[in-house]
Amino acid sequence: MIDWVSFTPVSALVGGVMIGLAAVLLMAMNGRIAGISGILGGLLQPRRGEVAWRAAFIAGLLAAPVLWLLVAGPPHILVEASNAVLVLAGLLVGFGTRLGSGCTSGHGVCGLSRLSPRSLAATAVFMATGFVTVFVVRHLLGDA
């Protein structure tokens, strides 16, 4: 269920613009796609000349919520899943990222903007899987 009282379209729009700008700048300046799984994977298997920009990108991802916390304070977050479910979900996302040769940022943001057929297929599968998962959890399992 969407919490319409807490819905903030302006911050969502600004966030989307910032993600798009970061993707464009990374492509324009480094010739690289802003797929987070690929960027992180490149740090785990470092190659000469590839570590600094990857580390800076990941550091920015980690610093952004800290800066937001300092500016806006802590958000109200309600997680209605057990730790076991969250761990399982994380493992499934990681498996899907490897299986799909990329993540939602690489395929959904960068791949679609480049009109990549492979990214279109991957994004369609991500979205369909999400729709089915929500339907099963909410309607078949009883929204526990």
Rank of each mutant, 00 (worst) to 15 (best):
M1H: 04
V5S: 08
V5L: 13
S6K: 15
S6H: 15
F7V: 06
F7Q: 03
F7A: 15
S11P: 00
A12H: 06
V14K: 01
V14M: 12
G15H: 10
V17I: 09
M18K: 10
I19P: 06
A22F: 14
A22I: 10
A23N: 04
V24D: 14
L25M: 08
M29E: 12
M29G: 08
G31P: 02
G31H: 03
I36T: 06
S37W: 08
S37C: 12
L40P: 15
L40R: 11
G42I: 09
L44P: 14
L44V: 05
L44H: 11
R48D: 12
V51G: 02
V51E: 01
A52K: 13
A52I: 13
W53T: 09
W53E: 10
R54V: 12
A56K: 15
F57P: 05
G60P: 08
L61R: 00
P65D: 15
V66D: 14
V66W: 13
V66F: 15
V66N: 04
W68A: 14
L69I: 06
L70R: 00
P74M: 07
P74N: 02
I77E: 03
L78K: 10
S82T: 08
V85A: 13
V85M: 11
L86A: 03
L88G: 04
G94D: 04
G94T: 05
R98S: 06
G100M: 08
S101K: 12
G102C: 06
S105R: 01
G111A: 00
S116C: 09
A121S: 04
A121Q: 03
A124W: 02
A124H: 10
M127V: 11
A128S: 12
T129E: 04
G130L: 01
T133W: 13
V136W: 07
V136K: 06
R138H: 06
H139Y: 11
L141N: 02
L141W: 08
G142K: 10
D143M: 14
